[in-house]
Simulated assay, not measured.
Amino acid sequence: MGIREEIKSYIVRSGMTMTEVVDRLYDDYEWSRSVPNLSGKLRRGTLRYAEAVELADVLDYDIVWVKRKR
């Protein structure tokens, strides 16, 4: 599964629509209110890490780094 599909699956699991997600991002972090803008970032793979953290926050997720066992 690619990053785009993974993030979209988190949006679906949260029970929110893309429009609702974009509205929350606008309200909480002053993102653009444009669904095509978010979709484009996911499609192009240009979502910055800080944006991913904010997106996870509005979806009520935490991004956790776990050291791999070797």
Rank of each mutant, 00 (worst) to 15 (best):
M1I: 09
L25Q: 03
E30S: 07
E51Q: 14
R43N: 10
V35L: 06
R70Y: 07
K67D: 12
V21M: 03
M16A: 08
E51G: 09
G40D: 11
V21Y: 04
I11F: 03
L47K: 05
V64P: 11
S32P: 02
R44P: 05
E20F: 03
L38F: 09
R24M: 07
R43S: 15
R13T: 10
D23T: 08
V21K: 01
R44N: 12
D23P: 01
R68K: 14
W31E: 04
D57M: 01
E5A: 10
D60C: 05
K69I: 07
D57R: 04
A52G: 10
V35R: 02
I63V: 15
L38M: 15
Y29Q: 09
A56Y: 09
W31R: 03
M16K: 15
M1E: 06
V12K: 15
Y49K: 08
E5C: 00
D23S: 13
G15D: 04
L47R: 10
R68V: 13
R70N: 14
P36Y: 12
R70M: 09
G40L: 14
L38H: 04
T17L: 09
D62R: 14
E54A: 09
E5M: 06
A52R: 02
G2K: 06
L59D: 08
A50G: 08
R44F: 09
L47N: 06
V66A: 12
E30N: 11
P36H: 11
G2H: 02
V66D: 11
K41C: 05
T17V: 11
E51H: 03
K41W: 06
D62S: 14
W31Y: 07
M1C: 04
W31N: 02
R43M: 07
E6S: 13
Y49T: 07
V64N: 14
E54S: 12
S14M: 05
V66N: 11
W65E: 13
A52L: 15
V53D: 13
R44A: 12
I11W: 04
M16L: 15
M18V: 00
D27M: 08
L38G: 01
A52Q: 05
R70K: 14
D27F: 02
E5W: 06
W31C: 04
A56S: 14
R43V: 13
V58Q: 03
I11P: 00
I7R: 02
M16Y: 10
G40A: 15
L25N: 04
D28I: 01
R13I: 08
I3H: 12
L59G: 06
P36G: 10
R68P: 07
Y49A: 07
T17E: 09
D62K: 15
R43L: 13
I11A: 01
R44C: 13
A56M: 11
S14R: 05
S32K: 08
G15F: 05
V64G: 06
V64D: 11
S9Y: 04
G2D: 14
R44Q: 11
Y10V: 00
T17P: 07
R4S: 10
D57A: 15
S32V: 06
M18G: 00
E5T: 12
V66P: 00
K67R: 12
Y61L: 14
L59V: 13
R70L: 07
V12N: 13
E51Y: 00
R33I: 10
